[in-house]
C-alpha cells in the first residue's frame, strides 16, 4: 500500500464505524495563548473536553497537521538524528467524546 492508500484506508475504516471525518485544523494556532502551533489532534477539540462547548458528534476521525517545535512537545533536536521523529507530521486521530476506555482498548 502506498501512503495515500494507507491514509484513505484509515479514514474509510472509521467512517464505516460511524465516525464523522472532520478536516484538519490549521497548523498555526490563532486563538489559544497557551499553544503556538497545533501539536496534537485533540487541540481543536479542547473546548469540547473542557465543557465550554457542546458536542456535535460523539465519534470523530481525521488526519491533523501537527508541528512539535516549541513548548512541552518539542522534537526539533531529534530530527535528522533518528528515523522516527519529525517537526511536522500528520496525526491520524480517532476521538470519542463522553465515552469510556472500552471503546478503544481492543485489537481487531
Amino acid at each position: 500500500m502506498n501512503s495515500k492508500e494507507i491514509r484513505s484506508a484509515y479514514l474509510e475504516f472509521f467512517e464505516s464505524k460511524l465516525h464523522k471525518i472532520v478536516p484538519s485544523a490549521p497548523i498555526v494556532n490563532k486563538n489559544d495563548p497557551t499553544l503556538m502551533f497545533t501539536n496534537a489532534g485533540m487541540n481543536q477539540f479542547k473546548d469540547l473536553f473542557l465543557g465550554n462547548k457542546s458536542i456535535q458528534y460523539h465519534r470523530v476521525a481525521d488526519t491533523q497537521k501537527c508541528l512539535r517545535v516549541s513548548g512541552k512537545h518539542n522534537d526539533l533536536e531529534d530530527v535528522g538524528i533518528d528515523g522516527y521523529h519529525h517537526t511536522m507530521f500528520e496525526m491520524l486521530g480517532k476521538l470519542v467524546f463522553w465515552r469510556s476506555r472500552q471503546s478503544c482498548c481492543r485489537l481487531l
Binding site: G41, F45, F49, Q64, M91, L95
Partner: peptide, 8 residues
Amino acid sequence: HVDTGMGF
C-alpha cells in the same frame, strides 16, 4: 473522553 492519535 477518549482521544487517540497515531503517527501517520
